[in-house]
Amino acid sequence: MNFFQIISEIEKVDPEVYDRLDSRRSIFKHMTGLGQKLSAAAVPLALGSIFNKVYAQTPVGASVNDVLNFALSLEYLESYFYQRSAAGSGASAVTLRGGFSGTNLAAIDLIRTDEANHVTFLRSVLGTAAIADPGAATFDFTGGKGAAGGPFADVLTNPLTYLAVAQSLEDTGVRAYKGGAALLMSNKTVLTAALNIHSVEARHASRLRTMRRAGPMNNAASQGLPVSPYNAAPKSWISGTDNGGAGGSPTGPTAPIYGAGNNTGAPTGVTFDAESNTTQGGAVLTGLPNTTGFPASAFSEAFDEALDVTTVKTIARTFVVNGNNFLA
């Protein structure tokens, strides 16, 4: 076993490995002690553990923490939402669960597991820098902010409304992570983790849309047909602005989820366009070769759009009770 050859290999994926090692010479002390205690077969595992110690020191910067806490806030919003349909969560959960077919219920339960896992994961990355658990009382998923008459008044008992709000939360999350990515570029590990949550949120959004177009009691959700303008029976991807999304109209409560954001302070070259955008990186998609005869909708569908933190917070606070500063 050639220790220095191993370091050389690691250098290929981590050019700073020598710096990391040099700044913590005690690693070589670990090596000496280990040799006496471990059999040859155990050495590879032990060596991995030594590198754990080095990598574990990688600091998470303050601004990165801010972005991660923003992400954690959104995960709490989602996690508490799905908790409302969990078995054992009261009479409304019984009603909700009774309104879904078996595979659709399994899908909702799976999404709930994912969102709870995301909360746990982000807390583990943030450590003591993580925000406090906001608690269930922070949220009002009717959109009434604690008062009666919210736009989704029957969200906790009507599966159709529940799916509509779920889609809205997931599509918002996808746009939020996409907008946050450029703010995490200084830490490749955190950036990659965020990207790896981003795509899972997109998978959720896709499934929720699939269930909405086939209906909550339909076990064959993937066989449902979308109906233009896609607010009630959407495609699995966003088409134009989906006529304002699950809220039902271009002036409805979910319309901002599919609209343009605020470009103030955006990283160079980045713009927060509406989901109907068909110009990407300066390229006008509708004029591209080999796309003759494509439906106009395909050009906006092919690209999702990012959203800025401020706009996302405004959207998310639709579900925060008045007087609570969560996500403010």
Partner: peptide, 18 residues
């Protein structure tokens, strides 16, 4: 940042496809 964001715009559509 522009390219990273563009990649993000595509990957979430790929995830919806998947």
């Amino acid at each position: 940042p522009l390219y990273l964001t563009l990649a993000g715009k595509i990957v979430s559509v790929e995830a919806r496809h998947a």
